[in-house]
């Protein structure tokens, strides 16, 4: 972002999801973004075949968080050989739910006038971190105590050179909210909350020690299978 603007959520660079050789010349690369609460799949469609492509449509298989296209894939003009177009597809989270392995896996079908093609991709679950995920302090303390220790997962985030305030503000851009900060023995402890689109709350403690580039992240969540994906988001957000 420009000077004085919040950095916003991290958007990974596009990667190739469907190589042309597996889709009769159609190449699809893409990424996911959350902007002001709107989830989008951002796609580049390239025609590497010898003939024009038309009649595009997209469908998702059921998935862990109910991600579904909120409208049709808008490819309004035929795609000529060697042409690339950029398409943004808004997504909802009210589609059918089925737990996927890995949890953030999405199976996609794309059709055009030539055939139907299938691919899988993975989204950062920060896509699902909602804007009102700042938990009341009192509720945080009670919930932290209430979630059993067995549901706590710990991770080390290496090579991070931000101080705790910079980390906190960067994380907030991705809807990871700092509820409290305490300094004990030269360590800053950030207590943070996250709420997913399906109502699951995640509580974390981020430990930042002056002069030590390794952070310790503790994640407490009743649905403990989301913890490692939350950790992946911290890595992505803090290092980009």
């Amino acid at each position: 972002g420009s000077v004085g603007m919040p950095a916003g959520a991290y958007v990974p660079p596009k990667s190739v999801w469907l190589p042309a050789m597996k889709a009769k010349g159609l190449e699809i690369s893409g990424t996911f973004a959350r902007r002001s609460g709107v989830i989008q799949m951002e796609l580049s469609l390239t025609n590497k075949a010898m003939s024009v492509m038309t009649d595009f449509a997209i469908q998702f298989n059921r998935n862990s968080f109910g991600l579904a296209p909120a409208g049709p894939l808008q490819v309004l003009t035929p795609l000529s050989p060697n042409q690339t177009i950029e398409v943004s597809l808004p997504l909802s989270t009210s589609g059918p739910v089925m737990k996927m392995e890995p949890l953030n896996n999405l199976q996609v079908a794309v059709k055009n006038n030539i055939d139907v093609f299938y691919f899988s991709c993975q989204y950062p679950i920060s896509l699902l971190f909602v804007e009102d995920g700042k938990m009341e302090r009192q509720v945080f303390l009670a919930t932290w105590k209430d979630i059993p220790n067995d549901n706590e997962a710990q991770f080390v985030i290496k090579d991070c050179h931000l101080n705790s305030d910079a980390a906190s503000s960067k994380l907030q851009g991705s809807n990871i909210f700092t509820i409290a900060k305490r300094t004990v023995d030269n360590q800053d402890m950030l207590y943070q909350s996250i709420k997913l689109t399906n109502g699951i709350w995640v509580l974390t403690e981020l430990r930042v020690q002056g002069g030590n580039p390794s952070y310790t992240l503790s994640v407490k969540c009743r649905a403990s299978e989301v913890s490692q994906f939350v950790y992946q988001c911290y890595e992505l957000v803090l290092k980009n």
Partner: peptide, 20 residues
């Protein structure tokens, strides 16, 4: 008073986590 209590509770939590 509630706010003071919460401030104190977070301090206790942080201390308990660094010196369990």
């Amino acid at each position: 008073e509630l706010e003071d209590g919460l401030d104190e509770a977070f301090s206790r939590l942080a201390k308990s986590r660094t010196n369990p």
